[in-house]
Design a protein around this nucleic acid. Sequence first.
DNA 1: ACTGGCACTCGGGTTCGGGGAGTGCCAATG
DNA 2: CATTGGCACTCCCCGAACCCGAGTGCCAGT
Lengths: 339, 339
Amino acid sequence: MLDERKLAVLRAIVEDYVQTEEPVGSKALVDRHNLGVSSATVRNDMAALEEEGYIAQPHTSAGRIPTDKGYRLFVDKLTTIKPMSAAERRAISTFLEGAVDLDDVVNRTVRLLAQLTRQVAVVQYPTLTRSTVRHVELVILSTTRLLIILITNTGRVEQRVVDMAKVPDDTLLGDIRARLNSAVVGAKLSEARDLVKDLSKAYAPEEQPIVETIVKTFLETLVEHPDERVAVAGTANLIPVGHEVHASIRPVLEALEEQVVLLKLLGEATAPARLTVRIGHENPYAELSSASVVTTSYGPGDETLANLGVVGPTRMDYPGTMGAVRAVARYLSRILAGQ
Amino acid sequence: MLDERKLAVLRAIVEDYVQTEEPVGSKALVDRHNLGVSSATVRNDMAALEEEGYIAQPHTSAGRIPTDKGYRLFVDKLTTIKPMSAAERRAISTFLEGAVDLDDVVNRTVRLLAQLTRQVAVVQYPTLTRSTVRHVELVILSTTRLLIILITNTGRVEQRVVDMAKVPDDTLLGDIRARLNSAVVGAKLSEARDLVKDLSKAYAPEEQPIVETIVKTFLETLVEHPDERVAVAGTANLIPVGHEVHASIRPVLEALEEQVVLLKLLGEATAPARLTVRIGHENPYAELSSASVVTTSYGPGDETLANLGVVGPTRMDYPGTMGAVRAVARYLSRILAGQ
DNA sequence: ACTGGCACTCGGGTTCGGGGAGTGCCAATG
DNA sequence: CATTGGCACTCCCCGAACCCGAGTGCCAGT
């Protein structure tokens, strides 16, 4: 049904529309691309493409714009991811090298991605459950309050206060600390439950409840319900430069402030090194039905620590955006592996 | 020059303009407020007010809108801070009570403030230098890397990795940890420098450089250069609901993503329990010359930990916004004191 | 199968002209 | 002297009418 030339026409339409932001007509198309045929022929092809639902007219006697389905075909078949230029690669590298700690790495990454793509960037902090334990610290805050601190191999520090009837004395606490550490250090957080479940057995009966409280809080709050944080940058890019702007970006801004929404957007990324592109209505949220999301995962080696991505209008530069997302994810992975 | 009635006219103009968002004329004014005089009289008063620079006309034969100077007079003399209703107070209270840790407190606060004022809210994390030390922890990461963790009385945890030629063994480290803690626990961070400067003297000559490295990093990165973080919420409120919107909010959005700008905006707040209002051009940034900022500081008791505030258009509901900012700061202070 | 030609459509920009809200000024008035 | 009613004037806003041009669909010709 769709021969080679019709696909070329679709590709040209997408490319022109992304650049000019205006419906593209048959005449303009043959002028800008050397398709080797006349505008009348292109018109026939366009009619066929519209018939199949790949393009649409905003109104009669206007040019065509791609539909979500058209973008989908474009992304799947008609283009290749654009690699970063040498200058861009150098910029990414030097910009990320300077980071001093994990927070800084994530912040720099999200700003960088926003700048490269000129869109809204979203980066999830490395997920706890996939990282391993480096150290657990117990600190007495008062006679009834204990602070548990967890340090992971990604440099992340999680904290949690426990209220208890009576905090154990230094000796006992030191013992608990030692046993807890020898049990879980080096292990993945997801394995922690099995490793500590018998920990209290080693203690005298009257001490067991205390130990169990600590272990329980440790597991519940630090391991199983890590508040998965995300960083956002480039929201100003939602507002086009010269242009007037719809009020329709309000719901988008609202959605971008909701951690839950962001996590869901990022959350369904697939295997590492694969890019996920969700176009328009393919998004899980109606507010983002005129937006596209490009995500991927990152992490040292083949391990997947978390996800990152970009949110922009369906009319976006897919090859460039995909290239930037992939490149940033790779560099971020490398940085994390080095730490 | 400005008698009682002229001030009443100015007040009425501000109130009406804030509500309707449209230039207000003499006729509409006498209809909505019972000033007891005719529109002709009001016109004369308006001419006087314009002469003095408190109001202006967008163009001839249009109504008047307040100037920055007009808002300034309104805020200083013509109105009182609007207290929160009982229902609002209850909402604030219950919403903030539920927080589980410091991050949560700040996040809830900033969202609450954005919701109450329907504007952009900014909350600074409690500043380190004004809080006191609760515990210092030293953790061995590898043979050459040491992690310093600082816990403050506000529940904040700061971390920093130190690269060193050789990390001290457990015994020595335990000793350093004990001395460091006994030196600084309970002290303000601003006093820490004096308290630890002679710490290395107690050690053997060959151990002194190691201790000094740790102390130096501790001071430099944790005490003197805390990265002062801020939380922002409600950026979607920059976009009015029904209305079309200028592209002029782009620089505002950009500014709101810059930590430095936000800190500067918040940074110059005065004594606790005092509200600072900066109107239009009074702001230190040209990008925000059509915005007003209402800030105050917070902290348990009379202590000032950090600042919070609201950014909105110069045409904002000052009494209501000021009331909300004051109320939220008070509740936040109370929460922090309780912890 | 492609192309040139042609009639047709429709959105966007421009022009034009009332209607209306608002102003400034002035003479009259308590 | 402050206040008021009246009046002429000024613009902005809005809708109607209009034209222009880009774009389309179709068809006959190569």
